[in-house]
């Protein structure tokens, strides 16, 4: 009846993550034998690494063409018909970002991640729903953690009570000792007299 024992073991929550990890590992290593290649026909393509920075563009790895607020940049979205202003957001720079871009050619990342960047285009404009979800996950996890922390793992009211009690206890003990001392001394005095 060995299979029954194995089945019983599976019913223990502690073994489950390890079993899962084991299955995952096996499948991952099987992936090495699967023929894989990147399909070059992708959405939102970008130039080869370091090409833009070698060209000395001021907004280096994220320059997607276009003129600020006039001409949309080059963006390849899945359903362009759903996004009317596609590419315009990459063509937009906040005044602060424009000022920074006039200073140095090496701050492209910062500029393009500030409002009006390419990532904003992808994150908020065409795939905004994803962002909502991802940030919801973040918010929920923090709500869970902070609730637990405030109400349980970090609740200091109990410990304060304990500390007070301990302090009282020790005060009581000290008082008792004192009283006992005095009694003893009185006895001693009486005996001496």
């Amino acid at each position: 009846m060995k299979i029954g024992k194995i089945w019983n073991k599976l019913a223990d929550p502690k073994t489950v993550p390890r079993l899962f990890a084991f299955c995952l590992g096996i499948i991952l290593i099987l992936g090495l034998f699967v023929p894989m290649a990147l399909n070059p026909d992708q959405l939102y393509t970008r130039p080869a690494p370091q090409v833009q920075i070698d060209d000395g563009l001021p907004i280096a790895p994220y320059d997607r063409g276009g003129v600020v607020l006039k001409e949309p940049g080059i963006i390849k979205a899945q359903f362009p018909e759903n996004s009317k202003e596609l590419g315009m957001i990459t063509g937009y720079m906040s005044p602060l970002a424009e000022w920074v871009s006039s200073i140095s050619p090496y701050f492209g990342t910062s500029i393009y991640s500030s409002p009006g960047g390419l990532i904003d285009e992808v994150l908020y404009y065409t795939r905004g729903f994803d962002t909502i979800l991802e940030s919801s996950i973040l918010m929920m996890a923090f709500i869970i953690a902070s609730w637990l922390a405030i109400n349980y793992t970090m609740d200091r009211r109990d410990i304060e009570k304990d500390l007070k009690k301990a302090a009282n206890d020790s005060a009581n003990v000290a008082r008792e000792i004192k009283i006992n001392d005095e009694k003893a001394r009185a006895k001693q005095l009486r005996r001496d007299n």
Binding site: L38, Y44, I119, V122, I137
Partner: peptide, 16 residues
């Protein structure tokens, strides 16, 4: 995957 889409997918995944 090496596209802007991939980068946009990593960003919040990290925070998650």
């Amino acid at each position: 995957v090496g596209t802007d889409l991939a980068e946009a997918l990593i960003l919040p995944g990290l925070v998650v």
